[in-house]
Simulated scan of single mutants.
Amino acid sequence: MLQSLFQTLNFGEQRGLGMTDVEFGAQQAARRPHRTELYEAPPSWCWPIVYSPEYNITFMGLEKLHPFDAGKWGKVINFLKEERLIADDLIVQAREATDEDLLVVHSRRYLNKLKWSFVVATITEIPPVAFLPNFVVQRKVLKPLRTQTGGTIMAGKLAVDRGWAINVGGGFHHCSSDKGGGFCAYADITLAIKFLFERVQGVSRATIIDLDAHQGIVKRDELVFRAARSRGVPVLMVTSGGYQKRTARIIADSILNLHSLGLLGRQQAACALGSPSLDHMVRDSAKDFSNLSLQ
C-alpha cells in the first residue's frame, strides 16, 4: 500500500521521483545551490525533531470536509509533550520553503498552476476550496504544506548531522515535479534528497522506505531504525499517510517506543558518510528492510 504512516530515508540509493533519470541528472548538473535559510543550524540543545504550529490546516471548518485529520501534527506534538519527551524549546522550528527552494525540484509552470484555487482543490480533494480566493488558499492551505516541506528539507540535514531526525509532518509521496495529488502539493521527499546531494559532501545515494499507514506499525519503525542506526546510516522519518483520528496517537507511540529503546538521542552522530564501506552497509540494510512483513 503506497499510503504510509512513516516514510524513512536512509542515505543510500536514490532515484528522482516524478522524473526520468535523464531529466533528474540534467537538472542536477545545471543547478548551482541557491541561498536558503533551511540549512541554518538550529540551537545545539534542540532535539532533531522538526515541527511548527503552522503545519495544521484549519479554516472555517472546511478541513472537516475531508476524511484526513488536518490537525494531526499538532496532536502528535501534544502527546509527546504529555509524556515529557519534548518541550517547545527543544523542538526545531520548521521554516516555510520559498519558491526558490521549491524550484530545486518543481517547475515554474507547476508552481504557477497552484495559483488557481480549483487546481489546489483537486490536489487536496476538498472541492469547496475551488471557490475560495487564491490568496486565502495560499495562506490557509498551501502555506502549511510549504512549511511542512521546509521541515522535511531541514530534517534531512539534521539527520546527517545528528544521525537521525523526525519531521512531524511532510512525506508528500503522491507529488512529482509537475503534478500534485492525494493531498500532496509539494514533493518534499525529493526536495530533501536533492538538497543533500547538492549541498552535503558525501551524500550521493538514498533509499526510501514506504511503510503501511493503516495498521499501526510501531514495530516496523523500530526495525527500520535499528537497521539504520546500527550501521551508522543517517535516517529521516516523515509522517505522511494515516490521517484518521487515531493516527496521531500511533505516530506518537512509535516515537516514544524508539526513544525508550535508545534509538533516539540528542548526541552528535558518528555517521558513515564518505566511508568506503557505506555501500556495503546500505546493501545490508536493504536486505533487512526487504524482510519487513507487510501483513
Rank of each mutant, 00 (worst) to 15 (best):
V238F: 08
D212G: 10
R220S: 10
G262E: 09
Q267H: 11
P276I: 11
Y243H: 14
S204H: 11
A213K: 04
A270S: 05
D210G: 07
R205S: 08
C271Y: 02
H280E: 15
P234D: 03
P234M: 02
D253T: 14
R266D: 02
I217P: 03
D221I: 09
M281Q: 14
Q215F: 02
R226P: 00
Q215P: 00
R226W: 00
G265N: 10
S240Q: 11
Q244D: 09
G265D: 10
V233M: 13
I255H: 04
A252V: 02
A252F: 04
A272L: 09
L211C: 05
S230K: 07
R246V: 13
K219A: 10
S275A: 09
I209K: 05
D279Y: 06
T207L: 04
N257S: 13
T239P: 05
S260F: 01
I250H: 13
Q268G: 02
P234I: 02
N257L: 08
R229T: 07
L258W: 02
L236C: 11
G262L: 13
H259P: 03
V224T: 09
G241N: 13
D210I: 12
V235I: 15
I255L: 15
L261H: 03
Q244K: 12
S260Q: 06
I209S: 10
L223Q: 12
D212C: 13
S204R: 07
T239L: 13
K245T: 07
T239C: 11
S277D: 10
V218N: 12
H280A: 15
Q215M: 06
R220F: 02
G265V: 01
I209C: 11
G242T: 14
V218D: 14
R266Y: 01
R266M: 00
T207N: 14
Q215V: 10
T207H: 02
K245W: 06
A248F: 07
R231P: 09
L223M: 09
I255E: 03
M281C: 07
I208M: 07
L211K: 02
R249S: 10
F225R: 11
I255M: 09
R266C: 00
S230C: 03
T239W: 12
Q267E: 12
S240A: 14
